[in-house]
Amino acid sequence: MNGFYWNALRIEFVQGETVALALRRAGVANFGPTPNGGAARYFCGIGQCQGCLVSIDGSAPVESCITPAKADSKVTSGY
């Protein structure tokens, strides 16, 4: 199985799975803080609400629900 790192925790994923799905399957519900003080999370699943923004390997924030997981990447809160 492939894996990426979420705040130093290794998250396993199946090829073709999105970052959000792998995080949820691993029991991660809170994807970090949002600018308005809420918690980023998986919600719409189609990239429209931007409630699941994460940064991958230091990138600008991306929608984790439509971004394929990549082996050995480092995923952190997008805000």
Rank of each mutant, 00 (worst) to 15 (best):
I66N: 07
R25S: 12
T18R: 09
C44M: 04
L9V: 04
I66L: 12
G45S: 03
P68M: 06
D72L: 06
I56A: 02
L9D: 09
T34P: 13
V14S: 14
P68W: 04
K74F: 08
K74A: 11
S59W: 06
A69W: 01
F31S: 08
T18N: 07
G32V: 01
E63R: 13
G51A: 13
G45V: 00
R10N: 08
I56Y: 00
C52D: 14
A8K: 14
P68T: 07
R41Y: 09
N2W: 00
N2I: 00
Y79A: 09
Y79W: 13
F4Y: 14
G58H: 09
D57V: 04
L23K: 05
E12Q: 12
P35M: 07
I46M: 15
E12W: 10
A29N: 09
V54W: 02
C52Q: 03
G45M: 03
Y42M: 15
Q15N: 09
Y42N: 08
A39C: 10
A40G: 15
R24I: 11
L21K: 15
L9R: 14
V75D: 07
F31V: 03
C49W: 06
T76Y: 01
I56W: 02
M1D: 00
K74L: 10
G78M: 02
S73Q: 01
A8N: 15
M1T: 09
E63K: 05
C65R: 03
A20E: 15
T34G: 08
L53R: 05
G45N: 05
M1F: 06
F13N: 10
G3Q: 14
K70C: 13
F43S: 12
P61E: 14
W6C: 07
Q50S: 14
E12N: 13
W6Y: 02
G47E: 04
D72I: 02
I56V: 15
C65E: 12
F43I: 06
I46K: 14
E12F: 12
G16P: 09
V62C: 09
